[in-house]
Design a protein around this nucleic acid. Structure first.
Length: 555
RNA sequence: UGGCCUAUGGUGUAAUUGGCAACACGUCUGGUUUUGGUCCAGAAGAGUCUAGGUUCGACCCCUAGUAGGCCAACCA
């Protein structure tokens, strides 16, 4: 099955046809370690790492750590953990800060060639000369400062003689460029804060634009892929490259693709932080969060996530991908690898009036999709639970489940027939008395074991079950495009009831589950053992429900 | 009032680079099924933002509109 190529691959193929040496292809994933990775990053990660695989090229993990005000070691660690979890291996682990020396020396070359100058205005003054998208800016009074003076002040900036805000180094380009980024962009500023890696070695730090392209060049990245909002930066990227590039080396190419937007969720760091800080969620790895750690805790596998972003594709237009695609990918992945189990969440008692054994161990298939998954023993007895929804005293026409006088099969066990209901003083059914057909035992080989009845229900023996806590999640927002709301409005669309804690009665084998282990709870959905789950307190997060055609049919 | 980018079923992405619009999700039928799951078969749904132009032929090229996005951090 040949999948169609995306526009990035077309660009690379074109370059190859034009004589670019395939062995020189090189990619990079360049996160800033200032927060946790989310589903949007998964797209960038998969894009770059899969490209590297496809073209047998190298790929670097490069931390874009040019702003010590925001960056922390814990984010570096978390990012590495997430990428590893996705099962990707980078060739080299690098840091923009590895290049601070060369970047600094190149900046001095820029000064010497009169392509950079120290501006001694404050940021407001600089901003006021910047112009607007429709009006040109004006030159700084310091623009024609002498090379010697520039060098002197820049050296003093570097040695820490000035405070933050007193001077900046700017590239001398064009204050009337229609591209705002070309209007003498700042390339160095003073930040007196310890850097997670270089500690206190530097007090001047290079800006993103000055750093990124040059880092790509240093690493000989052939194709530098970033998201659409960096398109205007390309002109600057190229200008900076022009200042240092050696014709005999690879000149990196920046190309931009649309970021991934998922319906009903946000990826804005600020908004995500708001959710965390105001306890709308339980931390960055809350199963409702679109962070990789949240998705992981929710039970999405690396394969499901990869398949999802690959199906979503790569193009240049703004998009919002429907959550149903993610859910589809999760089900498809989980269907094949999950063992099935029975858990009754909202129980009603079943008593088999003609059943006399104390306990019977039945053999249940673990996964009909995988013969190698084998089977397990499940205890059966006179007193059972089934799902309250699975019994109706007065059922509608297309009700395939249990009702008075009707038969259903208990999964992997017997066919039972409901004969009588017992109600409480509120007139609610609390127990159903049934009889079972002893000859209908699953797998017994008897003709009755093959008997067809309309419904099959999951069940659990009352005295042979374990309690489990089940956490069900709904969307975090009451709008399909929460990203459209600004910070103040966005608070109003938060779904404050997006998590439900439920109790269930499950098979005892669940006590052996490991945190992170996925299961299908038969007829319910896919669930994963939570990180905090223990033998004494079993906790499962609902990843995604099974597809359910029943609800959609008219009653 | 500037520059740049984008526009294909409800959603996302394709279209051998100019040859009668395909795939996936979703939706709807039907079949199989000891999960109303899976699986299988099928259907509906766009004529490619609009108007011109080039061409034997345009989703693709050109022009002009329209709509949406991005750009005025000492953030990345």
């Amino acid at each position: 099955m040949k999948k169609s190529k995306n526009f990035i691959e077309h660009i690379i193929d074109q370059d190859l046809r034009n004589g670019f040496d395939k062995k020189k292809l090189r990619f990079r994933f360049p996160p800033e370690p200032n927060g946790y990775l989310h589903i949007g990053h998964v797209k960038a990660i998969v894009l770059n790492f899969e490209l590297a695989k496809e073209y047998s090229a190298k790929i670097n993990l490069r931390f874009d750590d040019t702003n010590p005000e925001k960056e922390e070691q814990k984010y570096i660690d978390a990012i590495k953990k997430d990428i590893k979890w996705l099962n990707y291996k980078w060739d080299e682990e690098l840091y923009a800060s590895d290049y601070f020396d060369i970047l600094h020396s190149w900046a001095k070359d820029l000064i010497t060639s009169q392509k950079a100058y120290v501006d001694s205005q404050n940021s407001d003054e600089i901003a006021s000369q910047k112009g607007t998208p429709t009006e040109p800016g004006s030159n700084s009074p310091y623009r024609e400062r002498s090379v010697d003076e520039n060098l002197l002040i820049f050296d003093k900036m570097t040695s820490g003689e000035y405070d933050s805000g007193q001077h900046v180094l700017r590239a001398k380009i064009d204050m009337s460029s229609p591209n705002m980024l070309m209007r003498d962009p700042v390339i160095y500023r003073v930040i007196k804060k310890s850097h997670p890696r270089t500690k206190d070695k530097w007090v001047v730090y290079p800006m993103y634009d000055w750093t990124h392209g040059e880092s790509d060049y240093i690493e000989q990245i052939s194709h530098s892929l970033c998201t659409l909002e960096f398109k205007p930066h390309r002109e600057l990227y190229d200008w900076f490259l022009d200042q240092v590039v050696d014709q005999n080396k690879i000149r990196p190419k920046q190309r931009e693709f649309a970021r991934l937007n998922l319906s009903h969720t946000i990826t804005s760091k600020r908004k995500l932080l708001y959710l965390v800080e105001n306890n709308f969620v339980d931390g960055w790895d809350d199963p409702r969060m679109p962070t990789i750690s949240g998705l992981r805790r929710r039970g999405y596998s690396p394969d499901a996530l990869k398949k999802f972003v690959q199906k979503a594709g790569v193009a240049k237009r703004e998009n919002i991908i429907e959550m149903s695609l993610l859910e589809f990918c999760a089900r498809e992945d989980l269907n094949k690898k999950c063992n099935r189990l029975m858990v009754v969440q909202n129980p009603i008692k079943i008593t088999l009036t003609n059943y006399s054994l104390e306990e019977e161990k039945l053999d249940l298939i673990n996964n009909p999709e995988n013969v190698n998954a084998g089977s397990r023993k499940v205890s059966f007895s006179k007193h059972l639970y089934i799902e309250k929804d699975d019994f109706m005293e007065n059922p509608p026409k297309k009700f395939f489940r249990l009702s008075l006088g009707n038969e259903v099969r208990l999964k992997g066990a017997y066919i039972i027939k409901a004969n009588n209901v017992i109600k409480n003083d509120k007139d609610e059914v609390v127990e159903v008395e049934c009889t079972y057909d002893p000859k209908s035992k699953s797998g017994s080989g008897s003709p009755e074991s093959q008997r067809k009845v309309k419904g099959t229900l999951h069940w659990i023996s009352q005295n042979h079950s374990v309690n489990v806590e089940i956490r069900e999640y709904e969307r975090l927002f009451n709008d399909a495009s929460p990203g459209d709301y600004d910070m103040s409005e966005f608070k109003n669309i938060i779904n404050t009831e997006s998590v439900k804690y439920l109790n269930g009665y499950g098979e005892k084998i669940l006590q052996k589950s490991l945190p992170g282990e996925p299961f299908q709870f038969q007829r319910k959905g896919y669930y994963v053992s939570d990180l905090s789950s223990t033998k004494d307190k079993l906790i499962f997060n609902k990843t995604v429900g099974l597809r359910d055609n029943y609800k959609k049919k008219p009653v």
